[in-house]
């Protein structure tokens, strides 16, 4: 589904991604871990199409298409979803209006008619229940005044609404209490199928107890310095990153 080859990206002339390679197939769950500032969010942003990052080298194919050629909205409509590490507040734009526009624009992209209001509200209700999102939140402005945990839950709610093929969840677990973590993880698991894939970026093993990854990658200083199975996460939890950093050419 996704194939990243030798991806380099800059911001303001500073190289952040220094040659990333990896591959995601349908049905897989990948976890990306790594110290602060190593480039995890940058990678997620580049995949979602953030223009402030300049791709200087490399190639990203998504279902045999050149992902880097696509606008963020095209990527979204083609099934890429980014769960933000820091979701953005949009005062004055209601969640309902926001989601309705998103759903219908994605439908339009696929050549489908807009959803009727009643169908849409039904879908909202259904997905809200799935992630146990407080009904009151859905009637407010996007993320405005939401608590940290509420924002994260709202990301998963949006993911549920949009039914992406490839979800990239950037530290969706941070700021969540144990119950919320379970709910969010359940949400992700319920949406999982053999046709879609998930990349979870996290610092903590505890999320991976719920969302069990097929692969774990360690990103350090703009490169993937180690990949392994789910046991790698346990090892990292125990030993930290220092043993991996050693011997890595900076």
């Amino acid at each position: 589904m996704l194939s990243i080859k030798n991806l380099h990206a800059n911001i303001e002339g500073k190289e952040i991604l220094k040659g990333i390679d990896f591959e995601v197939k349908a049905g897989e769950v990948h976890a990306i871990m790594g110290p602060n500032g190593s480039g995890k969010s940058t990678l997620a942003s580049v995949l979602a199409g953030r223009e402030i990052f300049e791709v200087t080298e490399g190639k990203v194919d998504y279902f045999e298409k050149d992902l880097l050629e696509m606008t963020p909205e095209e990527r979204a409509s083609e099934g890429i979803f980014l769960g933000f590490q820091y979701p953005i507040e949009i005062p004055g734009v209601s969640m309902v209006n926001f989601m309705k526009t998103a759903v219908n624009q994605q439908r339009k992209h696929k050549g489908l008619e807009p959803m009727s209001s009643s169908d849409f509200l039904k879908l909202m209700r259904e997905k809200k229940d799935l992630v146990e999102l407080d009904a009151a939140l859905a009637s407010r402005s996007v993320n405005e005044g939401f608590s940290g945990g509420e924002k994260k839950r709202n990301e998963i709610f949006q993911m549920a609404m949009l039914e992406p093929k490839l979800s990239i969840l950037d530290e969706t677990d941070s700021g969540l209490d144990i119950d919320a973590l379970r709910i969010v993880a359940n949400g992700v698991n319920k949406l999982k199928s053999k046709d879609n894939a998930t990349i979870v970026i996290t610092h903590y093993q505890r999320l991976l107890d719920y969302i069990v990854p097929d692969f774990v990658h360690v990103l350090y200083n703009g490169r993937i310095i180690k990949s392994g199975g789910k046991e790698l996460a346990l090892e990292l939890e125990e030993k930290g990153y220092d043993w991996l950093k050693k011997g890595v050419d900076l």
Binding site: A48, T71, P72, A76
Partner: peptide, 10 residues
């Protein structure tokens, strides 16, 4: 950008 990542055109 946030809105665009949801499929809403610029």
């Amino acid at each position: 950008f946030y809105m665009r990542t949801r499929g809403i055109p610029k």
